[in-house]
Amino acid sequence: MRYEAPSSTKAAVTLLTKEKGKSAILAGGTDLLVRLKGGFVEPDLIVDIKRIPAMREIKKTASGFQVGAAVSGNELGASVVKKAWPGVVEAANLIGSKQVQGRCTMVGNLCNASPAADSVPALVAAGAHAVIVGPKKKRTVPVEKIATGPGRTSLAKGEIVESLLLPKRPARAGDAYLRFIPRSEMDIAVVSAGVSLVLDAKGVVKEARVALGAVAPTVLLVAPAAKAIIGSKLDDAALDKLAAACSAACSPIDDKRGTIEFRTKVAGVLAKRAAKIAYQRAGGK
């Protein structure tokens, strides 16, 4: 087993590409170290990307924001992103404890490929993209294309998600993320919902994206749920349709964290509540 901390993305890609055995990328480490401790992974190479300056940056660009792969929850929470995408930042800041927030990253959360990842429904609702570097050409894909199942991703050998792109916000836009956990802190989402809205001048929902977590093998983008509220002012009938569309999209499992019945019902409840917050944030009344 080797530990490497390259100082450039290129060097990291080279290390990962050349490694003949198993390799692991270390960003915040809040998932990787748990798996190492449990003996679930035994990599031959650990590549720490935190010493790569580009991965530590948050940049405001013409088209929105670029958040580096090694940006911690705390760094994100203190950044300019929060004003534009409060739902995304709040979601990322829900991961783990204050101790974990000093380490965890959104990209790590995404690439860990858990359907219950807190930041991912918010990122999917936001229409975020992942910038992927690797031995071949740099590519950019919607975040919902990264996870292909629990713990599995579409990344090829040698590929790293270098950063996430969040689009620029128009006027009258708002997003929100809510999760259900049995305690007030420290839990994995039993079910979760992210909603992003853009309103017209009259407060009618013009654009919407709704995503659900922990109700399927991957985070779901639920188009019918968005459709249920587009054109509405989020009246009760529209919200009920939203909840029904969300519940209909669920295909969860019974496990130690919750039941099929519970997840299906509460997915709708959370989507409604998140939509209301997003609507308010967008200036809707």
């Binding site: 305690r183 802190e185 420290m186 839990d187």
Partner: peptide, 11 residues
């Protein structure tokens, strides 16, 4: 302790 949920301070 993740899924055996003893009360945390904020509970």
């Amino acid at each position: 302790y993740l899924d055996y949920r003893i009360p945390v301070c904020s509970d």
